[in-house]
Design a protein around this nucleic acid. Structure first.
Lengths: 351, 351
DNA sequence: TTTAGCACTCGATGATTGCGAGTGCTAAAC
DNA sequence: GTTTAGCACTCGCAATCATCGAGTGCTAAA
């Protein structure tokens, strides 16, 4: 049995009300706040149907109804009204993100904090997946004998570096021969195709004895590989402590522990975005989220882009009772601004 | 009126008991757990005195007593028994900290997480104050026209870098003339004495026209200055959610907000360590801590050293009802291990 | 100075009650 | 057939009350 028009209206109204009040929604309250042209008794019948169909839940007999995961799903898929930012809100976001303008990490941090402040929920910004980007430069700069700063420059203008230790009899000249051999050999090769073996074979061209090479190769390799590490900027976790959902500390602790598990959330969001490459945003609700401790939450995530290959994610984690349409409009807007800024950074970098 | 022997004993016992139970301590419970050779009535009289003198508080008539800030202060200053780590505990700590061995940031992160796990409270590790250390090297590496990686090497082997943008008509040669002029001019000068003016006058020696110089100076200056930024690694905040002290979320939120205020806690700890240079550890209890939101907590901090000039801090934040002596022994031990590791890093660096 | 004894305090617990918000059902109205 | 007024019923919640007992403070005797 599909939902008829009136059921949809009622479900929508219930979700809207529950989102703003956090209290189970009663038939009477509904007809007062929205002007359905029917009585509370009719609404009650409809609500009872909706419960049977799995869209609503009743915390206990004689209480109002609360949306189930399925109810929220229906709501976000086809019921909610899309929200649009006011000009002022948009301007504010643009202003804040234009401050930190020439550095990826700074931009993402700012994006994350803005997103959290605007929505009032937990925000997330994840650095791009760089597997598809390629090595443009590899420099090894000797700080002092035995200590080298390896600088990796990737396409899309991303620069990462790493301080490593090598045998201290290597001279700067030998080092620079090695690094330029690797650079030449790997130029244009996507990170995902770079392995210890490819690095080694590239380094062969330096014409240095293996005994010298081997000591450096591994460090060069890990420096390159680490450029692909995802970094996560999470913001606003404390806000969750003010939500009635988490008014009991043990629930809060479960949530916080889950959020603090480094890599779990970002890995999940990452997967999500790979599975939904063409979607403009992704929503996961409650039990749909396969991370222990987050089943009382919803995710809204989206993907930002540098060119057509490089992509990272931003997202919001909030209670299931989230202001979905507002968050969607905010996150979409921020995504646009990030894309724009990144294009600009790229243009500045010549490429 | 000074505390006589028995009062001290009783106060000590009360703190010990309260630390482990988190419940107000009653006279009867006291004489059962500890064998004072007196009756509960006597203890009651003593407790009443101790309350009068400000060492104890009574949540309400007819409940047991709880230590006041003054009570804890007396306890840590002269009553508690010092705890020593078991060999196994020490070994475990040493093992964990020896894993990440050649990089300051990694060592401090590991130290922080170890400290939190061992104590069960919130831990803190702060990078060293580098004002007294001096510039050893300044390199500017052109990534591509207009984009430069500024690498700052300080005495004590600390390396920091920063990606900056400069006018794109500057050539690598000009850049390297500027950076080596600055390097030569500032070599050996402590960071605290470096200003935009000193940088500019050092750069003069590059013999390049001011019009070129000015564009780069500021970036060089900020790169150098930023090397002095304190970074903070905090761990285990979630553990606080399991303490009865913070079983109500609004208290927890206040605490978490305070902890998240970037720089507040680290600044406080920093100040503390400057004021108590020769102390082997510092304790601040409740109201003694002048940070809003942390007045239900205690701090135990200590200072680690690289040589005799460079020093940073590690610390523990817990409830006032903290296991002081245990934490002190743990933090002291970890401090020693850090010092040792840092000496080793320095030796490796030939510094 | 210590302590046994006892009255007193007060939070915590649990039972009881009433209230009221909310439902589901029925039967009448549309 | 659908809607709705009416009403009985459910159940959480808050208030009230009594009880219990852990704990104190005080007094008077040891």
């Amino acid at each position: 049995m599909p939902l008829d028009q009136r059921k949809k209206q009622i479900l929508q109204a219930i979700v809207d009300d529950y989102v703003s009040t956090a209290e189970p929604v009663a038939s009477n309250a509904l007809i007062q706040r929205h002007d359905f042209r029917v009585s509370s008794a009719t609404v009650r019948n409809e609500m009872s149907d909706l419960e049977q169909m799995g869209y609503l839940e009743q915390p206990h007999t004689s209480s109002g109804r609360v949306p189930s995961d399925k109810g929220y799903r229906e709501y976000v898929d086809s019921l909610m009204k899309v929200d649009t930012l006011t000009d002022a809100e948009g301007e504010e976001i643009r202003r804040r993100l234009s401050e930190s303008f020439d550095e990826l990490a700074g931009l993402l941090k700012k994006a994350s904090s803005t997103l959290s402040e605007q929505t009032g929920y937990v925000s997330l910004a994840i650095t791009p997946r760089l597997r598809k980007s390629y090595l443009k430069q590899l420099k090894m700069m000797m700080i002092e004998p035995g200590k080298v700063l390896v600088v990796v420059v990737l396409s899309a203008g991303i620069v990462k570096d790493r301080l490593v230790r090598i045998p201290d009899y290597l001279t700067p000249e030998q080092l620079s021969r090695i690094s330029s051999a690797i650079e030449v050999g790997l130029y244009g090769k996507p990170l995902e195709e770079i392995s210890l073996v490819t690095v080694a074979s590239a380094a062969k061209d330096s014409q240095l004895p293996d005994s010298l090479l081997n000591q450096v190769l591994y460090e060069a390799y890990t420096a390159i590989k680490q450029a692909d590490n995802l970094e996560v900027y999470m913001d606003g976790t404390n806000r969750m402590l003010s939500l009635p959902e988490f008014s009991n500390v043990s629930k809060a602790r479960t949530l916080f522990d889950a959020l603090a598990m480094d890599g779990i959330v970002s890995g999940y969001v990452n997967e999500l975005s790979m599975e939904n490459e063409k979607a403009s945003y992704m929503i996961r609700i409650g039990q749909e989220i396969s991370i222990g401790g987050l089943s009382d939450c919803s995710f809204i995530t989206t993907t930002y882009n540098v060119g057509d290959k490089i992509a990272g994610n931003i997202g919001v984690i909030g209670p299931k009772r989230m202001e979905y349409s507002k968050v969607i409009s905010q996150i979409s807007f921020i995504r646009q601004v990030i894309n724009h800024q990144l294009e600009e950074i790229k243009a500045l970098n010549g490429g």
